[in-house]
Each structure stands twice: as C-alpha cells, then as structure tokens.
Nucleic acid binder design. Sequence first.
DNA 1: CTGTTAGCGCGTTCAA
DNA 2: TTGAACGCGCTAACAG
Lengths: 367, 367
Amino acid sequence: MPTDRGQAAGRPTISEVAAEAGVGRATAARTLGNYGHVSPELRKRVLAAADKLGYRANALARSMSTGVSHTIGVIVADIGNPFFAGVVRGICDASRAGGFDTIVLSTYEDLDEEIAATNVLIDKRVDGMIIASAAVGGRDVGHIKEALNRGVPVVLVDRAVPSLDLDAVVIDNRDAAREAVERLIAAGHRRIGFVWGPPMDRPPATRRELLEAASRNLWTDGERLRGYLDALDDARIPFDPDLVMVGRKLEERVTEEVARMVALPDRITALFCTETDAVTGALRALRAAGLAYPRDVALIGFDDSAWAAVMDPPLTMIEQPVHDLGAKAAQVLLDGIRGGEPVRETHTLRSRLVERASVAPPPSPPA
Amino acid sequence: MPTDRGQAAGRPTISEVAAEAGVGRATAARTLGNYGHVSPELRKRVLAAADKLGYRANALARSMSTGVSHTIGVIVADIGNPFFAGVVRGICDASRAGGFDTIVLSTYEDLDEEIAATNVLIDKRVDGMIIASAAVGGRDVGHIKEALNRGVPVVLVDRAVPSLDLDAVVIDNRDAAREAVERLIAAGHRRIGFVWGPPMDRPPATRRELLEAASRNLWTDGERLRGYLDALDDARIPFDPDLVMVGRKLEERVTEEVARMVALPDRITALFCTETDAVTGALRALRAAGLAYPRDVALIGFDDSAWAAVMDPPLTMIEQPVHDLGAKAAQVLLDGIRGGEPVRETHTLRSRLVERASVAPPPSPPA
DNA sequence: CTGTTAGCGCGTTCAA
DNA sequence: TTGAACGCGCTAACAG
C-alpha cells in the first residue's frame, strides 16, 4: 500500500492522466509540458483526460528536474514602506510579464535578516534575486557573494554597493540632493537643515566625522548627505554640524530635532528632508513652533506623493521613478537569467525635482 | 556519466555531505534535517562536512517528499497601494514568525488575473493562501472553491465574500462608514457627497439601482456605501443620486465629480471619501473651487496616514489596523495549515475614527 | 542508533 | 511517434 506522503488529496499526477488517457507517462508529459512531438490524436486524448481530472502541473517537481524555478526573490527593507511597495510592484509587473513569480522578504534594515533572507532564497532555488541591501561593503557583502558563487544572479536596486561589481538600478541620489539644496540656496538660504543623517551616538564634532559615519551606513543616505555638502561647498556656505540630524530615524525624533534647529540663535530658514517621514515630522515641528512654510522656513523633501501635491501650499519634492526602478531591475535580472552577457553595470534612472510652492526666500535676507 | 541536469554548480547535495563525513545518506539527512536520533559523534562529523562543503538544503526537494512547502501565497489587488503594502507586511511578519515564506501576486482588481494567480500558487504547492478577492460571489468564486477542493486552505483578507463560508479577516466597513457620516450629520450637514461609489455606465436613477451596482462590485465599497445610506436613513435625510460619484475610480475623476457636486444649486457641504485617492482628488477640487475645509466643506476619509495628520487643518480620518489585518490573516491561515479546527469565521478587527479638524458645521446652518 | 531502499512528480534519454 | 527506465535531492519506512 503506497503512502500518501507528499501527495495531497485531489491532485492528479501526470501518471494518472496518462492512465486515464490510455497512453504512456511520457506522452502525457510531452503534451502537458508542451515539448517533443505527439500525434494529434493522442494529444487530444491526453488533454481531455487532464481536463477531466483537473490536472495541474506540480511546479516543484518540474523545478526539480529542470533546475529552474521560474521564480525570483526580492529582498527589501520594508515592504510596508510606500517607496519599496512601489518598487516591488514594478518588479512583480516586469517579472510576471517575463513568466516569473516573486517571493518577497523584508529585512527591516537588519543585516542578519538580510543574510537569512538570501539563504531562504537560495534554499528555495530561485533563479535570481533583487536586493535593496543594507550592506555598505567590506565584510557585510559575504551573503551576496555567496549567492553569486552558487550561481544565483543578483541585481541591486535602490541601493548600490560600490565595492561590489554588480548590476544595480538606482537614481543619482547625490545629484538629486544637490539639485534640491541648490534650489534652496538660489532662493537665498544659507542656514539649511538636513534631516536625516546617519545614525550616530552623539552629534558629529566635524564634517569628517559625519561623513565617516555616513559611509558606514545606508548608501542612499550617504549619497544624499554628500549632495547636500556639495551644494553647500559650491556656494561656499560653511558646514554647521548643528544643522544636521543624526541618530535613530524616527518621525518623532525629526520633530524634536527640527524644533531644536528652529530655536537656534541663528536658526535655519530652510530644510532638506531625505525621506517622507522626515517631511511629515518636520511639518509637525514647524506647526508646533508657529512657523509657516515657505514664509518662515523653506522645504524640500524626497519622495513625492499625491499628498505632497495637495498640501497647502503644495510641497516641492523630489520624485523617484519608483515603478521603473523595480521594473528595470527585474528586466536586467531576467536578461541575466536568460544568459545574456553579464555586463554588470550601474543603471542610473532619472529622478526629478517637482517644483511647487514650499520654497521662498528667507524671511530677512542675509546682509 | 551523470548529466548536470537540475544541478547547478557549487551546490553540494546531502549525499556528498554524507560521503565527506563517511556516513550514510540517512544519517546526514537526519542531522541536517533535525529529526530522528544521531549519535553526537556522527552528528559532529556531518555538521563539519556540511559546513566545509557549504551545504544548503534544497527546499524544493524537501517539499517534494514532505508535501509541505512552508510557503504561503498572497493575492492582493495592488501591492503598490500603501494599504495593501501594509497588509502584506503584516502577513510577511506573522508568517515569517511561523516559519513560512511568502509569495505575493498582484491582480489589479482583475478577476482573470486573480484566477491565474491562484493557479500559480496551486502549481507551486503553497501550503495555503490569503486573498483579497475581487470576487463578489456567485460564479466568480470558482477558483477559490477549487483551491479549497485541492486541499489548500484559504483565508480572505480585507474583503469578505458573503456567499463563501470561509475564514475572513476584515473590518466593519459599513459601521465605520456610518460612524463617519453620522459625525458629519451631527455637525449639521445634510448635503453629504459620497466618493466613490461603484463603477456604473451612467449615474443611477434610483437608490435601488445604485445598490444593485454596488452588490456587483467590490465588497468593501458596497459596505461603505451601505454605511453612508444607513446614516442618511437614520437621520431621515433623503438620498440624492447627484451626490454620489460613480464610474471609474480615478483621482482625476474625483476632482471633476467633486467640482460638480460643489457647483450644484443646493451644493454639498460635506464629503465622505472611501479611499485615500478620493481624499486627495477631493482636496484638489476644493482648492480649485476656492473652497476651504472645514469652513466651506467638511471632510472625512478612509485610510489615515501621517500626511493626513500634518495637513493644515489636519484631516479627520478612518484608521484601519492595516498591519494587524495582515498579521491576523496569516495567523488564522497558519492555524489552519497546522490542522487546527477549521472554524471558518469572520474576524472583524476594529477600525477607528481619528477626529482631527476637517469637520465643522456647514457655512449657513439649515433652517 | 545506523544504513539501505523506496518513493515524491516530473523531464529526458534510449530503444522500440 | 511512443513508452520504459532513470535521475533530480530529499524524507521516511524498514531492517540491521
């Protein structure tokens, strides 16, 4: 008596279809798998039998013998974050169009979680993976290299890892940030707050210290900080550590920090926010301080949304090609899986500064 | 000479580990699979060998023989939508905590896509699925029944399907909507716009016609409409078809429709929006018409967010327990998979009306 | 406690 | 063109 191990109820196998149709397994397999040659006559009988039994191929078994799962894995920090949700949607769309399914894993910005996630994907024998990695280089890219060693193509999305020679689909964060801050400077601002910077135990004493912390943290954040500094340098505006928020990235902390910057003797007159949560946090602080934008404080932030457009006044924001970021990453990955030449280049998509009405000259123009 | 079929480079199998350790396959399998009894001595040798070879279990092969994939499938309308992104995050969190991975598929509200998605999941032999279904009952639930027939547990999330006796995790949309509209009525409003209603070719002539269209469409939307009508009925306010938007659910269309309602001889003084896009669309229309909220038009909408709280004035919104919706659904599903009694009940989570400042009495109080 | 053996369902040679 | 037989990597009986 055969056990039922591995065979749930109501799941006919190809053998059963073959029996029903009165043909050999192989013939059934050929018709159902759409390969080889089968006489129209038998073909019809097999199809009829399959239909009658409600046959559905077991993708697992198929993957076992072909070694291909038609599945790609995606690792992002937080699937609940609208930015990543948009990217993932782009990935799903493009991969589905290419006949692939998607497994999504969230890491919450934790490298150990990220490593565990790559292992899960390796175990599940995905054909490739797309990672928005929290790794910054050095020794924390071991898991990515391992995937590569095991023959699993990897493409990076949103976050590049400079030390890794890999396909990556990103925007030019540094340039986008610089453009935004330049816009602020052009309006006459010189005291420009930066929210948020890298996690640090204590405020940086020097610019060098800040940059070092940044280089040990998220690639995107570091780039955006550099863009901010670039713009300051170009305008010969001295860097003031008091004007950057460091530490844990929480909306409430933004509110506190902006309140601090706004209470400074030589207070900020403009604010550059590197993320949506930073924008909302900043807005809270401004209101609490009885300050209005753009009259008292000008504001530009990352990640445009429908909300930013309906604020009153509407917000000037940086728009990222969220969907395209994901779609492009999936396309590059699929090309790689299909054996295209592994070019290993960085694909830089264009972001856009959407100018609306949150930027105005500072209250009292500097002397 | 064995072919390399199905065996990519650098992927040692359990047999190789066994050979390396000088033990039988089964012993290696037992240690690596953490089952049965193995002497500490051999165990150590196996582990060492596995580590040396960089062994990683092939989850596919394991699933084949156990019939369990430790993977659940999720089908939602749009993973890029912040609401669903939050739900999916809840699902991922809870299922990961239970040792399961997640495959996510988007359907874009298309029933055929949804059917295709269930087939993909069946083929991949997921252990269960969570669906936010566009099905409303009748004949379009065939795919769900089929999954059930094949022994795949299904739990519904966000959207119940009344005709189906299934576990479902939802909020009480009808009650939430009624509460919101009652709040508007309590403030003195009688001309309350409803955005958005069901897709219809032309505006409904009667209330009956509208309800019929609603019952042929998304469950959540229908419930929210009923809640709106409930509140109107309780207050003996006559239903006016001119005050509901029907047709395609696009942000731009909301803007047009709200503009229309606001230009009516007996114009609306309040607005109830069933979705975030409806809120932003409405806000656009109000601004274009030179109307301010809550002074000229009061406003309540579904799906609270950080943005709604920082608007000026801040918006009164209905908050859904997004993450919990997903987490609970995953828990119920996992219980089912683990063979808990299939209770098949509807789990109703609590939503909350977050009162802020977008509701005020109508401009000129009704006589 | 250990090793041998038989499947899981499918793709794929190879002989007929 | 067709069907029998083998292998993918693993788990689980069974025998020792």
